[in-house]
Amino acid sequence: TEWNVSVWGKRRAFTEHIHKLAELVEEKTGGEFTMNISYGGLSKNRENLDGISIGAFEMAQFCAGYHADKNRAITVLELPFLGVANLDEEVAVSHAVYAHPAVAEEMAQWNAKMVMTSPMPQYNLVGTGDPRDELSEFDGMRVRATGGLGKAFSAVGGVPTSVTSSEAYQAMESGVVDTVAFAQHAHLSFGTINQADWWTANLNPGTVNCPVVVNIDSYDGLSDAHRAAFDESVDEAIDHYLANYGSLLERWDSVLEEKGVQKVMISDDELAKFREVAGKPIHDAWLADMAAQGLPAQELYDLVFSTLEKQRMSN
């Protein structure tokens, strides 16, 4: 069996678990089950879910925020200020939500089945000019942030400004935006860190959620041995991802130092104010909106917090 896997960009921390999964599966099946990972050759990133539904390829990665209407249920994971503190918690929360029947049902409409998440740390801001460490300074700030994050910043007077991630560097350089919200690896790979004067270390407004899915027919069509090899490898692939991203985060401080980027800490008072304005109201709006569309919104929402609690107790 050879599977085609559609991802985008270039190989980076964000795709390491997929490479690891391919490696493990090949190893466990003695080379019988291989994966051919293609960076953009098979589909456009925003159409990976379509590709899965057509049967164009067997496995793919996508992000919920690219097309909220395709995957309403998992947008709960992109709400601002969920309070997810680290990548382990992000994995636990994501996988709990992925296992919910409402998510499985929505994915089944795309002939897709969730495999694992691509956990990302909180999307903190880099910016040019004087550091913005008070809420009042977010007023009129042009910020590159999508989905729930965009909503959070506009709640405090920021102006979410749409540029694609590949244009983010230039948008920052040209003053189209003042600040860009990304995870660390993306600040590195899209070069926004080179343009920045400061980085918010503890704003932690939220993150985006990017699952890896398989085509249901292809998955069901695997021989029992191959399917077992695949299923067994998922946890190990995620562990590899976490270890790899962890080392990137360890390097992060030295990257900041090397590029001369100031680490900005925002006071607890300011953070509390931000959460108050941009947290609860946006959560409530999401709950009302999704419930109106017939999703078990409250259930999904509660699942996030109960999972967080459980995860913290077990540590």
Binding site: E47, G51, I54, A56, E167
Partner: peptide, 18 residues
């Protein structure tokens, strides 16, 4: 069917670019 649908993604998908 699969091939036609793959090809059918391209005109809209690729042209919709800033």
């Amino acid at each position: 069917e699969i091939s036609v649908k793959i090809a059918g993604q391209v005109p809209h998908g690729k042209v919709s670019s800033q």
